[in-house]
Design a protein around this nucleic acid. Sequence first.
DNA 1: TCTGGGGTCCTAGGACCC
DNA 2: TCTGGGGTCCTAGGACCC
Length: 433
Amino acid sequence: MPSIISKHPGQRTKDRNMVFALVDCNNFYASCERVFDPKLIGRPVVVLSNNDGCVIARSAEAKAIGIGMGTPLFKCMALIRKHRVAIFSSNYALYGDMSHRVMTILNLLEPEVEVYSIDEAFIRLPASRPGRLEAYGQTLRETIRSRTGLPVSIGFGTTKTLAKLANRQAKKTPTGVCDLTAISDLPTFLATIPVDNIWGIGRRLAAKLRLRGITTARDLSQTDDSFLRRLLTVTGLRTATELRGIPCLEMELVLTRNQTIVTSRSFGHPVTTLTELTEAVATYVTMAAEKLRRQHLLAACLQIFITTNPFAEHQPYHAGNRLIRLTAPTDHTGELIKAAIRCLPELFQPGCSYKKAGIMLSDLTDRSCRQTSLFTTPPNARLMPALDQINRRLGQNTIQYGVAGLDKEWRNRRLHQSPSYTTRWSDLPRAMA
DNA sequence: TCTGGGGTCCTAGGACCC
DNA sequence: TCTGGGGTCCTAGGACCC
């Protein structure tokens, strides 16, 4: 096994008698909405992006009537009216909490769980004779369904990439489980998988591969290593190797800390004044700084970007971008806001209608190894923890910096938001008995 | 009228150093 | 005129993921 293509050469375990499972919640956001509103069962459901702009999740019924992923809402309004589709603005408080419940169940049942995204987790477990994994998958699926109300699909494979493929297959079967380790003729199965359905092969790489006659997963798995290395770099070679059943991607059981924290949003209406832009940027900095502190990190770099609507044809387009290196790494909202809004006047162009702004914190370090500066006095160390505690107990933005604005008229649209059933007392569902 | 948000990894190329 | 070799660090850009 050439260690050069293994992502974690030092951590490799020689144990070949282990398999990977991918547990993936079906149509996650749409399913979360359904759990608390049984009237939605059988009805098409879509969930919209932050500004009610595009469709980012669809129930099976919504897929069936032809609503595409990422479609702008205004382009599928006709379908939505015709089929009485239920529409929801995204409600990340709800989805985050439901995700946490699913992951907690997995962690209780399995020692090796890698939370891969909000709706997916890898599990590593001992290989088993044909039929046993399938049955275990069924049990796991039923457990999650009965404890959270969420439907999941489970795929088993000897590598993460194969488990991903198995999961895709599982979604098409009524049982919701697919065990590729039990398949006697893997290449024949791989020959049925188009190359762009493989995890790690996106649109661009798929086109590149097809040009060279590589159209299925089997083709890719049988392509010469050095050729692949040149064409797709080491990541593509890893994918091909994984398709052959040789693991290159190990379980990542320890949470690695973020390298960047980004907060950006589209505005609900065009922003044309520096005052409003300042409010928005200060608000985004506040959100990012809270996240920074939750993860016990400090940021040494702050980047700001603002942009007008790229789709508007008859308006001047402007995209501005500034990188600020702070004198000392910090997690203090006030310091970060000050640095951010200082450079806004030179970034802002009067006459432009801004559609979106964002900030990025980078060069993150652990709070425990704070590097202080000789030339500045550190801010009051008790202020931010006190502020966080108050906002946690009494609700978001109970206390905030004045510069972030009170009306926030630029805030994005959320016309179809469901209640935060599981994270806000006042939103608890009521049962009539 | 209306088009999301938040991440990661890899490579090439330039600057700079010894 | 000829003009090395090896290393690091940084950044931009391209690709992917959910």
